[in-house]
């Protein structure tokens, strides 16, 4: 879906609430339901249509825990940082992947929007530690090298798909 289509849909959502300022939270909930996150463009459009400051919209969006302001990648990679995984050196895996994906600061998603890297408290698969999941599929006994290898495979697969299309 192109950016224009998304914005058109956002406009429809805002209109469906009659552009009422007090519907801001409900509007953002609807947008997030459809697009999994609130993009900058979407929030700017919402602010514009409701006639409120964009800082206000951003302020409300960042107050509530359920709103995500970041697009998630196609693959969501979670590295377990529970006790068992931690002692089996899950941190180097996380660090290695961050470096591989070129993530800096608070950035969690690679610039090609392919991967989102997160940590998870405990996946309850301590026997397989250190573990990571890719879109909820568990990958056991990882090393920094094997983790990167896995992501490269996924990337290659996506590349092939793309080439076919």
């Amino acid at each position: 879906m192109g950016k224009q289509d998304v914005l058109k849909r956002v406009e429809e959502i805002v209109d469906s609430y009659g552009c009422r300022r007090e519907a801001l939270i409900a509007i953002m909930q609807d947008i997030q339901n459809e697009y999994k996150y609130l993009s900058t463009e979407a929030l700017e459009l919402v602010a514009n249509k409701l006639g409120v400051g964009v800082a206000k919209v951003y302020s409300v969006a960042t107050f509530y825990e359920n709103f995500s302001l970041e697009a998630k990648g196609k693959y969501i990679v979670k590295v377990c940082c529970g006790t068992a995984c931690h002692v089996r050196k899950s941190q180097p895996i996380y660090d290695g992947l961050r470096e591989y994906l070129g993530l800096t600061g608070k950035q969690k998603t690679s610039s090609d929007a392919m991967f989102t890297l997160e940590t998870v408290a405990c996946l309850g698969a301590c026997g397989l530690s250190p573990v990571m999941t890719v879109n909820d599929e568990v990958h056991p006994k990882m090393t920094p090298e094997s983790a990167i290898e896995l992501l490269e495979e996924l990337r290659a697969k996506e590349g092939a798909n793309h080439a076919e299309a």
């Binding site: 951003y58 302020s59 107050f63």
Partner: peptide, 10 residues
Amino acid sequence: GMNILDFVGR
């Protein structure tokens, strides 16, 4: 009436 600055996060 500008609302350039606002609270962010909580």
